[in-house]
Simulated scan of single mutants.
Amino acid sequence: MSTPRTDRKVLVVGGGAAGNAVTILLRRAGVAVDLIEAKDDWNATAGSGITLQGNALRVLRELGVWERVKASGFGFDEVGITAPDGTVLHVQRDLPTGGDDLPATVGMQRPQLQRILIDAVRASGATVRLGTRAETLDQDPDGVSVRFTDGTEGRYDLVIAADGLGSATRAAIGITAKPEPTGMAIWRVAAPRPAGVTRTDLAYGGPAYIAGYCPTSEDTIYAYVVEANRDRATIPPESYADEMRALARHYGGNWPEITAHLTDPAKVNYTWFDRLLVEGSWHRGRVVLAGDAAHCCPPTIAQGAAMSLEDALVLAGLLTSGREWDDELFQEYYERRIPRVRAVVEASVQIGQWQLDGVRDADVPGLMGRTMTILRELP
């Protein structure tokens, strides 16, 4: 059986879920990795909460961080559907897409997940440079020469572009696909956990398309309301708490307790929903895309981070298989990922579009069930 070469050097651009995960996996196989991240704080404080379904947990277990994730987050196996007044209309068991030995879902604070991954990257021995971008990439048949924004240069056998939805690397290698808004936007906030919140509950209707919350630890939740997107320029950041509270105050059940904590605009996040799916291939020469740089979708089925983590697992597996790093290998990575990612992107966008169009008899449970059944299979 072929053994992985350990004389290769990889540059990972971007220290989010995909970039961190692929770094950890490549370092485990002995591949030299430089990771650069544009933000000085490595995104260690960004975001309110994240919902991780079983197929994401499966990758986190492979990364060796599952025990820390389990201890930090809040696991549950069902989702509730409520009326705007808080009346529970239906409780559905979640499909355990990571297998029966993992929770169906874990909610956790997004900064806590990032810190766990940061610790694993540091422990892997990768070279990490924060506040640094790739300024130019010059390719030849043998590799990529990179000039960085601090004036230094490096030579790599491969560059993995995991630099997010607005990926500068994607544009630099001539891939013209760009994210497109879907017409929806989301308000998010972290808050103390009401005693009764032990799963995700979703309310459809009322002044927002969706009002939901997810427990993220024994003490915390993150809550969100989804509405039609608005011109960001018309919403000053100092009004964010007031704007979210104006929507949330119309919901009952646990919402009054949650809404009482909507006082600090700095803790409220406002984001448009976007969609992106790069078609044909995810590489040009020796630069390959991963995560949100290649695909992104609304969080209507909570699979964005899971798809990024799966990209890292599949790509690292191919790169450490002992094969040549060539067009055939990179295209195989794309061919393995694209049917699964397309199913997630299309389902996520469709659920949102049904709401935008006011379709009352849409088969949301059926579409979600079919998609989750696909995701139960190994990537």
Rank of each mutant, 00 (worst) to 15 (best):
A168N: 09
R376C: 08
E37S: 02
T182E: 10
M368R: 13
A83H: 13
L89T: 06
A161V: 11
H283Y: 07
G86A: 10
T149Y: 03
S281T: 15
W325H: 14
A185T: 07
A71D: 08
E346Y: 00
N269V: 12
V359R: 13
A29S: 11
I36P: 02
I175H: 04
R323E: 15
V69L: 05
V31D: 10
R342K: 12
M244P: 09
V268G: 06
M108A: 00
Q109P: 00
L276R: 07
A71F: 01
Y251K: 09
E377N: 10
T136L: 10
I351G: 00
R129M: 09
N20S: 14
A241L: 11
I81D: 07
H283S: 10
A343M: 06
L95E: 14
K178D: 12
A168S: 14
L289Q: 09
T97K: 07
P298W: 02
F74H: 08
P339T: 11
P237W: 07
L102V: 06
L25H: 01
L356S: 10
H90G: 00
H261C: 08
T259Q: 13
A305R: 05
T198G: 07
G304K: 08
L375N: 11
F74D: 05
P96C: 00
H90C: 06
A290D: 11
M307A: 12
F76H: 11
N254I: 06
G252D: 13
E324M: 04
V225Q: 11
L276I: 06
I116S: 01
S321D: 15
V146L: 08
Q331V: 03
G164M: 12
M1H: 14
A241D: 13
T82I: 02
T6R: 14
Q353T: 10
D292W: 01
D40G: 01
E62P: 00
S167W: 02
A305M: 15
V364Q: 10
Y251D: 11
I160T: 05
G166Y: 07
G206M: 06
Y240D: 13
Y333I: 04
V12H: 04
R8N: 03
G14D: 05
I235R: 14
D311C: 05
W282M: 13
P103Q: 04
W255Q: 09
G280T: 08
R133D: 13
V65T: 08
D101K: 10
I50Q: 05
L315P: 00
E335Y: 03
V159H: 06
L329H: 11
R232D: 15
R284Q: 14
R5D: 13
R360A: 15
R245V: 03
P236N: 14
T82F: 01
G75R: 00
K39T: 04
P236M: 13
S217R: 01
Q353M: 07
A83S: 14
R188K: 06
Y213G: 00
P111Q: 08
A120H: 11
P256T: 09
T200R: 07
P103E: 08
R155M: 02
L319Y: 03
D77P: 02
R8K: 12
V31T: 13
M244I: 11
D327H: 10
S281E: 12
E243V: 05
T263V: 14
